[in-house]
Design a protein around this nucleic acid. Structure first.
Lengths: 333, 333
DNA sequence: CATGTGATGTGGAGCGCTCCAAACGAGCGT
DNA sequence: ACGCTCGTTTGGAGCGCTCCACATCACATG
């Protein structure tokens, strides 16, 4: 009955058990080169037998690095971040980095600055998923990648990985144009990506010799999509299609259309944006622009690791090409 | 031009600036009693001027406590956790605890044990939101609260805070009964809460002298709700109402009903569960059972803090009363 | 044979904080 | 005046790890 020692074993315990010095154990842990196979194995066995797990706190304190990155999500309620997170981790985990996640909206409620929290944790780097409030990141010293948003304000030296929202707006609009629609309205949201999607829509409309019609209600939620759709229907009764700023707004538009007695896609076609799980529900079956969040996440991680390796490298900005997922909410007029 | 020192200031820097000892600074930081007001102010000023922020790593190492708790979410894709997290934080933050969040599904993909991650971080406690895989938590030494699920397997000495799912199933069923429905089917999901919701439904049906009809497709997703609804429609063509295992499954049921040419709530009523954002969308307007996740979260945190204070206290199990939110998906038959 | 040279392995000095024992006064009862 | 207590403050000894300077040792080189 090997009485488990009450205290957690330390490298000293491991070292003693394996018959080596604590330094060697440390080397094995970080699997450094120039360690003989025999010792390495001995140390690993000792670790196994003692159930040893390194203390991150001690390691962080001594090395001044935590091998951890903080991920700031703009809103947990909007599930686009899930794939992005998966992509991030697919790169970060194998590289030995852990990631901790915080929600900006949640933190805002509790009145504390999430960035401060991460800095207190000594994260080695930061990934900001979504649009940061201006000023939040100003003058940040820690390497940062902004994921999903193309424009970061001035005062922040961050790398950027994002979907090409303007191209996405174009994709959605062209799909409707190709189906034969001409009276297409855009329901816009707030923020940088929304503005770019809008621009893509407008450019494509004009290129087709058509007059753009844009409505919005100030936000990006279902409510806003609903209100914007009503406004558009009011402004141009003969509409045959909507390009929504995102999937949630598209669902709001569906409600507005139903209220007007219009059926989708028979009377009016609707295109969403983000290709969220919402869009895939049979009952909604939204045609939607996919921003490839997984890849954005993976690329963000790669970029961050590169920057950690070389803080002086020139800033990078990458735009990933979106694609259109066609479902049941669009049809010829 | 006060040249900012390159290195982060430490308590020594603060102590020197405030003209006190490092120990006093440490006391002020943890605002201990028996510190004179004058010194306290002096220290705070020094902290301010230097932009000092305590190092969590050092503090954790020295005190053997991190004042942090790990939160395990079963699936980020299912947004019921958002409110729960908000509730948790509303208690944890003021108490000086930080929380870090991990997603079980995500971790499973990357093949690492999220609990291990938290243990390496030396979290003081754990909150498990949702149903843990059996065995995941077996023999865990760290204080743990299971939130949202009533039954935790054997081998885990955890406190429990959950909604009363059986009562919720009853609430949904009684609502339909009161509206005059008699042919009510239940679409069940997998897992402990689903089984309890089902039991509430069955009990209520029997108490009303009606025969329960339960279908399910093995899971808890939209697909499963769709398949289960088709099966129920097939088994009992004259159905007038569904009690779904959750909101997502309810949305699946809506699709099945539409395929059968049945309208909601005119031909068939549908009740969801969780009162998620989904239920509130105008286009869906699902009547749904609210589990009060925010309160569950807050209560979980309170319970965890109590346990941290007294590890020997008897285990607690709390069930919170759910309530019904009536929207547009239910009506008299 | 003296002298590199590179691969391995080791002790020791911290990293920035907490916490304990002990010091220091000031006020109090006798 | 004395010893005491109580409120306040302080130095020192780690917490468990990393990393550096240095010791070894087997071999190759001149």
């Amino acid at each position: 009955m090997p009485a488990e020692p009450a205290a957690r074993p330390t490298i000293y315990d491991v070292a003693q058990r394996a018959g080596v010095s604590k330094s060697l154990v440390s080397l094995v842990l970080r699997d450094a080169p120039h360690v003989s196979e025999a010792r390495r194995r001995a140390v690993h066995e000792a670790i196994e037998e003692l159930g040893y797990r390194p203390s991150r706190a001690a390691s962080a304190l001594a090395s001044q690095r935590t091998r951890s990155v903080g991920v700031l999500i703009d809103d947990f309620r909007n599930p686009w971040f899930v794939e992005l997170l998966a992509g991030l981790r697919s790169v970060l985990d194998p590289a030995g980095y852990t990631s901790s996640v915080a929600d900006l909206t949640l933190e805002a409620v509790s009145g504390r600055n999430p960035v401060d929290g991460f800095l207190a944790m000594h994260v080695d780097g930061l990934v900001v998923a979504g649009e940061p409030q201006p000023g939040l990141l100003r003058g940040l010293a820690v390497p940062t990648v902004v994921a999903g948003v193309r424009d970061v304000g001035p005062g922040l030296a961050a790398d950027v990985v994002a979907g090409d929202d303007e191209r996405g707006g174009e994709l959605a609009t062209r799909h409707l144009l190709d189906l034969g629609h001409a009276r297409i309205a855009h329901l816009t949201g707030s923020g940088g990506p929304a503005a770019r999607r809008r621009r893509g829509y407008e450019r494509t409309m004009r290129a087709a010799g058509l007059e753009p019609l844009v409505t919005g209600a100030g936000g990006t939620a279902e409510d806003d999509g609903y209100a914007a759709a009503l406004a558009a229907l009011d402004a141009a009764p003969g509409l045959t299609a909507f390009v929504a700023g995102n999937d949630v707004m598209a669902v709001g538009a569906l409600a507005a259309l139903r209220e007007h007695g219009l059926s989708v896609p028979h009377d009016v076609s609707v295109v969403g944006y983000d290709d969220s799980p919402l869009a895939a529900y049979r009952y909604l079956a939204l045609t939607s622009v996919a921003g490839h969040s997984h890849e954005v996440g993976a690329e963000s991680a790669t970029t961050l690791l590169a920057r950690l390796g070389d803080p002086e490298a020139p800033r990078r900005r990458q735009l990933l090409e979106p694609s259109l997922v066609v479902r049941g909410s669009t049809a010829p007029p």
